[in-house]
Structure formats: structure tokens, C-alpha cells
Design a protein around this nucleic acid. Structure first.
Lengths: 268, 268
DNA sequence: ACGGCCGTTTCACCACGTGGAACGCTGGAT
DNA sequence: ATCCAGCGTTCCACGTGGTGAAACGGCCGT
């Protein structure tokens, strides 16, 4: 009578826990499985090297590979993109030292879905900017890059939505002429920049983030899968310095992400 | 520096081999992975108990759970049904002792997709009737059960196709009146029976299989997912005996298969 | 009747999986 | 500024459980 392999059973158990909760901290998985954490760590490392699991750059949480969740769970299409972007943003961060975010539309704002901020040697981890943090459409570098390159129908929908808003950070939606000028300038320039009046975070906030950034879209045959940026403390560099030093790398990263998105719906 | 877990790695390796070749013998998997067979046996038993892999009744080959192949591989919709049917047919066979087949349409014939023939205590494994063996539409019990219950559009397509055929076993397609009578009688009766002139196997074969059978459809809201039957050596029992002894169990099995088909697109 | 192939069982060895303990970091509370 | 709680990670000694060569047995083709 053949017996089963315990270590394999437990590995699959961990995989199933991740299937039930597609993004989990080590502790989350521990709670579900009651497998001791050191053992879980080895299991997850093994799953990661087998390509079934990856880790989120921003907070180190474990993420089940998008190929395994097709059934049952409802995850939006951006999860695949975030997963694909993670290793590319990691390498980008190692190359240019400044960190990046990956951001996607979320109704009347964008939100952070992945980030290499915690991996940058220069920038302290800013507690406020976690996964899911909302970012303004019209004043941020990422929002402008997105709108400048996305299909017209999508742009119109976003602007129509923002026009209904009374918040001061959305006023620009009520000035189509100026907005169009800004977006066409962005497109000509090739990357998005913050509005000069915009200090980051909530509009008119008492704690501006003190950051500057440049942003490019993940452009795939007219479709935009999201935006990635490079950010730095405003006093440290001028935009011009970053553009010459980092923009090509940022654009290459965007191209690489889009490229591997096209191939990769396989189990490794 | 944490290390990975070898046994888990190998388990996943076997799983990937099955992903590449969704139905494989132990030897097939051995060829791909070069993991010793005794170890593979333990791995596959573990995967099976975790619900990721199941075994085909007919020949014991390993079959990756349909939930894991959604991406990449092209398998037809009947694979899921076969997988669901297997354990039910196994239990049915243990209960009534006579074996069953699960059959599905395949162009101008039906074919065997699953079978408990090897699990029956009474019937010798007949070498010719393997997975994939073609079965006649109009003379067999299974073909008649299928046509009697499937949607009219589907029935018409099949008959139109068979009318083009010159083979003697398809002649009935050219006699709509008689065929309609046979099918409506089948529907009234509730199960399919072989034509009296039909000896099994290829029409006019020198080696009739000497079997008799009754067949019922897997009927799901007007849709037919295939047919299951019970077969026995003709001399051993009369149709009437089998109908009273086994038909209710056969119908219950069909209902159970359809039922679990509806729920089950999950990872266990 | 025979031989080869494939699946399965056995068993003794010792790598390897295991988990308690201890460390370090971060964030929140006081 | 200080402390504490919670989480992730590393270390290491123990002994279990994974391992695979060898042997067995059943089926298939000849």
C-alpha cells in the first residue's frame, strides 16, 4: 500500500490557500493552513521558483500566478499586468535607483497596483502610498500619460465622469480646451508630468509628498494596460536630468511589459 | 538562505508533465520527468487525493483535473464530463457488477471516452474496445439513446451527415419514417437498445462482440452531454432482467453525473 | 507457450524536511 | 522618544519520511 508524500500535500495545501485568497501575507497563509512559518517560507520559495506564485514588490505579499485563478475567483484584468510588471519594475529600480509605480484606472481616480518604492535605496518607504492608494486623474503625471494615449472613447468616459465631480482637483475637466492642450502636449513630449500646482496626495493637502515623476503608458495596439512611472524627491533632481538619465529605461521597461503580456498565458 | 523542498518540486514537475500531456500513462510521465516510477506513484497518489489528478477507469492512465487546463491546452468539452463520470461509473459497476461505457458524438460515429469494463468482475477486458473506439450511430443502443433525446437541430445534422454515407450500417438514415419510429419508441421506453441485426463492432464483422446493452442520455436542460450504458454478455441475462435489476441505478448514475457537472468548476 | 513491457510492492538507508527558538524590523500606542 | 506587539526571517539539531534499486506479477503481442 503506497503512501502519500506529506511535504507535497502541504505544498498543495498552501497553493489552495492562495487560490482562496489570491493575495496573501505569510501570516494569512499561516492562519489558513496552520503550517509553521519556516516551513511555509520554504514551500512558498519552491512554488515561486516553479512559477506558480510570485511576490508583490510593494509589500512582499504572495500572489498566486494569474494562470491558476481563471476559474472561480474574480480578479480584474489588471492583476495579470501587475504580475507581469513586477519583475520588470524591480530590474528598472536596480538600474536607475529611483522607484516606480504601476497604476491603473479605478473610476474617478487611478490607483497604485504595484510599486518598487520599498526596493529603492534612496527613498524612504512612505506609509501612505500603499497598494490601492488613489491618485488624481487630471493633475498627476500618470493620469495625464494614461489619458493622452488611451482610445478616445475611454478618455471621453473618464472626463465625463469627472465633470460631474465638484472636487477642486477635478475642475480641469470643465475646461476642455486647456485639458486638450495639456494632453496633446503630453503626447508630443512622450511622457506625462504633474501639474505645477499639484503637490501629490489629496488635493490641497497639508502634507505634500515632495515628489516629482515622469510617466509612460503600457501601450499595446491602441489599448492602454496601465501606466508606469519613475519618481524621485523633487529637490534631488530636475525633470531634465531624469529624462536624459532614465526615460529611455522607463520606455524600455514599458515595452518589455507589454511584450511579455502578449506571450504569457501559460503554466511555466 | 532558505532552501527549496525537493519533494514538492518534483510533485510540481509531475503536474507540469501532465499539463503538457493531459492524459498520460505512468510510463509517459516517467519519460518526461525521469523521476523513478515508485516515487512517481507516490506523487500521483498524492495529487489524486488532492483532487488535481484523477485516473481513467478504462486504462488507469492519469488525467489532469480539467480545472487546471483551462488555459493553453485545447481539450474538448467532453473531457470534463468524462472526468466527472468516472467515479460514478465506478460505483455503478461495483453496485450492479456489469460494466458501463461513457460515449460521446464524434462526427459520423460515437466514441468511447470512459469505461468501467476493466473493473467488472464478470467481463474479460476486451482488447478492441478501448478509449476512442468508434460506435455506430443508428444501430447501437447508445446512438439511439443520444438521438432520441438530443435537440432536434442536432439530430438533423447527424442524420444529414449519415445520409451521405454509403456504408451499410448507415442505411437507416435513408429511411426517415422507420428511424423516427425507432427513436420515438426509444424515448417512450426511456432507454436505448441495439438493433436486432446489430452484433457490435464494425458492421458485418466476423467477430460479433456477443454483448447486449441498455443506454441512457446525460440530459441537462435539453442538452445531451453524452450517453452512458450498461453492457453484459448476451447469453447471461435477458434485457428484461437487466432493466428491472439495473435500469434505476443507471438512471440515478446519469442524474448524479449531470448534477455534479453543474456545480463543479472549482479547485478542490 | 514465451518474452517483454509496464505497473506495483518491498525495504533499508540516510538525506532532507521539520519546527522550536531566537533575531530584527516596522508600525502603532503611550 | 520609548516601548511593545506582530510579522518575517534565519538557524540548527533531531529523526521522520522520502527515496529508488530490486524484485514481483499481470497483461499483451507473437
Amino acid at each position: 500500500m503506497t503512501k502519500t508524500i506529506r511535504s507535497l500535500e502541504r505544498g498543495l495545501q498552501a497553493l489552495k490557500a492562495l487560490h482562496a485568497t489570491p493575495i496573501s501575507s505569510l501570516h494569512d497563509i499561516y492562519e489558513q493552513t496552520r503550517i509553521p512559518k519556516p516551513t511555509l517560507l520554504r514551500i512558498l520559495l519552491t512554488l515561486e521558483q516553479s512559477g506558480l506564485v510570485s511576490r508583490r514588490l510593494a509589500d512582499g505579499r504572495y500572489r498566486i500566478s494569474s494562470g491558476l485563478t481563471r476559474l472561480g475567483r474574480k480578479r480584474d484584468r489588471y492583476d495579470r499586468v501587475a504580475e507581469t510588471a513586477a519583475p520588470v519594475l524591480d530590474r528598472l529600480c536596480q538600474k536607475v535607483s529611483w522607484p516606480s509605480d504601476f497604476m491603473v484606472p479605478a473610476g474617478d481616480h487611478l490607483e497604485i497596483r504595484e510599486s518598487s518604492r520599498t526596493h529603492s535605496p534612496f527613498m524612504i518607504y512612505v506609509n501612505k502610498d500603499r497598494i490601492g492608494t488613489p491618485v488624481n486623474w487630471l493633475l498627476s503625471a500618470v493620469g495625464r500619460a494614461y489619458l493622452a494615449y488611451c482610445p478616445e472613447s475611454e478618455r471621453k468616459k473618464v472626463i465625463a465622469l469627472l465633470r460631474k465631480s465638484d472636487r477642486p482637483e477635478n475642475w480641469l475637466a470643465k475646461d476642455p480646451a486647456r485639458l486638450d492642450a495639456i494632453l496633446s502636449e503630453t503626447k508630443k513630449r512622450g511622457y506625462g508630468l504633474r501639474d505645477q500646482t499639484f503637490a501629490g496626495g489629496a488635493y490641497g493637502t497639508q502634507s505634500p509628498d515632495g515628489l516629482a515623476g515622469i510617466a509612460v503608458p503600457l501601450l499595446d495596439r491602441g489599448r492602454v494596460h496601465g501606466v508606469i512611472n519613475i519618481i524621485w524627491p523633487k529637490p534631488a533632481r530636475t525633470v531634465e536630468e531624469i529624462v536624459t538619465q532614465c526615460l529611455p529605461s522607463l520606455q524600455a521597461a514599458a515595452a518589455e511589459i507589454v511584450n511579455s503580456l502578449r506571450k504569457r498565458p501559460n503554466m511555466t
